[in-house]
Computed example of a mutant assay.
Amino acid sequence: MSGFLFIFMNVILPIGIIVVIGYTVQLKFKLDRATLAKLAIHYVMPAFIFMSLYESDIDFSLLLKIIFFLGLYAFVTFVITQLIAKFIGLDKGRRTLFTNSNLLYNAGNYGVPVNDLVFKSDPYAMSVQVIIVVFQNMFAYSYGIFSLNAENTGKGKALLGYFRMPIFYGLSLGLVFNFFGINIPAPLESSLDYMRNAMVGLVLFILGAQIAGIKFRRLRFSAFLASLTRLVIGPAVAFAMLSLFNVEGITAQAILITSAMPAAVNSSIIAQEYSDDPEYAAEIVMMSTLLSAVTVSLVIYVALNVF
C-alpha cells in the first residue's frame, strides 16, 4: 500500500494539481479553448514527438508489433463494450458513445505526463507512448467519426486533415532522422528542447480547461458503467493480452499504464459534432477522469511490479 501511496503522491497528485489549475482558470477567465488546443497541437506536441523519437533507441520491428497490438486491443475492446452495452439495453446511439468512450482514451494530455513522471523522461518509454498517442489520434478521427455516421462532413476529408497536422510531420521526421542517424544543428536542437519541456505543464492545463468546458446536467448509471469499463476492464484486457503475447519490460509497462487512461476529451468533442446526445459522452469523460486518480495509481503499481 505504501507503494500505491507513493505513486499517487508523486505521479497522480502533481498531474491533478495542474489539471485543477487549468479547470479553475478556465471557469474564471473563459479562455479560448480552441486557441489553447492549437497551441498544443501546432507548437508543443510536434516538437515533443520529434525529439522523443529522435533521441530514442527505436527497434522498428518493435514499432510495428506495438501498432499491431494496439489494433488488436482496440478490436477486443470494441467487442467487449458492444456486448456490455447491449446487455444493459442501450439504444444504438448511446451504444456507439459507450463503445467510443472506451476505444478513445486520453493517451496524450493525460498519458504523456504520466509516462514522463513514471519513467523519469526515459526516451524509450516515451517513444512507446508517442506511438500510442499517434495511433489514438488517427483512430479518433477515422473510426471515431465514421462510427457516428458523419454523412455530410466528408469523412475522408476529416481523416486526411490529420496528415496536414504538424504532429504527423513531427512523427515522420523523428522516425526518419532516427533511422538514418541524421544530426540536427545544435541551435535547433536547443530550441526544440525548450519547446518540448513546455509540454507537460501546458497539455495538463489544457486538459483542465477542456474539462471545464464540458457541460452536462445529470449522471446516468450506464455512463458510470462505461467509466468503470474504461478504467478497470480496459487495463485488465491489456494485461491479459500482454501476458499472452509475452510482452515484457518498459514496453509492457507503458502500454498497460496507458490502457488505464480515462476517456479522451476527443470522444466528447466528436460527440458534440456528430451525436444527438453529446451530454452522455461528456458524463463519461468527467466521471472516468475523476475516478482515474485511484485506478491509474493502482495500474501503475501493478505494471511496475509485474512486468
Rank of each mutant, 00 (worst) to 15 (best):
P14F: 06
I214M: 01
F98D: 03
D59A: 11
R217F: 08
E55A: 09
K86W: 09
L173P: 00
V118W: 02
S190E: 09
M9Y: 14
I182Y: 00
A186R: 04
N102L: 11
L159P: 05
S222I: 00
Y169H: 07
I41E: 02
L202W: 10
M199L: 12
E55W: 03
A150W: 07
S191H: 10
N106W: 04
K155N: 06
N152T: 14
T229M: 13
S288E: 03
G108R: 12
F135L: 13
F68N: 14
F163Y: 06
L204P: 00
I132S: 06
P278Q: 10
G89T: 08
L90E: 06
I49L: 13
N305Q: 10
I250H: 12
A240C: 12
M9A: 08
G108Y: 12
L36E: 09
Y73F: 08
L117I: 11
V130F: 04
I84L: 00
Q136A: 08
A281P: 01
F205C: 01
R230Q: 10
V232G: 11
D59L: 09
G249D: 07
V112Q: 08
A264M: 11
G201V: 00
F221T: 05
L160I: 12
A260Y: 04
Y124K: 07
S191T: 12
L31W: 08
K28P: 12
K65E: 03
K155D: 13
L256S: 13
F68Q: 15
L207G: 02
T289V: 03
V299C: 04
N266L: 14
E279A: 12
D57I: 01
F119H: 08
D116T: 07
A254E: 09
L219A: 08
L63H: 08
F50K: 01
M51I: 12
K92E: 12
K155C: 10
I284F: 02
S172G: 04
K86Q: 11
G201C: 01
V79D: 15
G3C: 12
T229R: 10
G111R: 00
S222A: 03
D59V: 11
M286R: 02
Y124S: 02
V134L: 15
G111S: 03
I18H: 07
Q253S: 05
S142K: 04
V130M: 03
I270C: 06
S227I: 09
P46V: 02
N10A: 12
R164Q: 15
A150L: 11
F224N: 03
P185Y: 05
Y43G: 14
K65L: 06
P113F: 07
G170H: 03
I270Y: 06
Y141G: 00
I84K: 00
A254W: 11
I284Y: 01
I284M: 02
T24V: 15
F216A: 08
I250G: 06
V134T: 13
R218N: 15
T251P: 03
V265P: 04
N266M: 13
K30A: 15
R164W: 13
A186L: 07
I233P: 06
M195F: 13
E273W: 09
E273V: 14
L70A: 02
Q210D: 05
S147L: 13
A236I: 07
N183Y: 01
F224K: 11
M51L: 14
E151V: 11
I15R: 10
